[in-house]
């Protein structure tokens, strides 16, 4: 029973990555949209792009971490 709950919990925790996926896609999509309109300004915003990506991705990684902890540690 405990084993079952572990796997269900890991699966549920992975759902958290859905939000991160939408967020990361949104960031790169918006960046491309802006970059296509004004390619000259795109290069300077690369750092900002990566910063936004990193901050958003961290949340998905947290939920992945919960899943990994449930699978291999608990």
């Amino acid at each position: 029973m405990e084993e079952l709950g572990k796997y269900i919990g890991a699966g549920l925790a992975c759902l958290g990555m859905l939000g991160a996926a939408i967020g990361v896609g949104n960031i790169f999509g918006s960046f491309l949209q802006g970059a296509m309109r004004n390619p000259a300004a795109a290069q300077q915003q690369f750092g900002t792009l990566i910063f936004g990506f990193a901050v958003t991705e961290a949340l998905g990684i947290f939920s992945l971490l919960i899943a990994l902890l449930l699978l291999f540690v608990v």
């Binding site: 961290a58 990684i61 947290f62 990994l68």
Partner: peptide, 16 residues
């Protein structure tokens, strides 16, 4: 926490 977990979890998940 987020700085360390990001690097650690990315490497961990990738290698797994």
């Amino acid at each position: 926490i987020s700085l360390s977990v990001r690097l650690f979890a990315n490497m961990l998940a990738g290698h797994i």
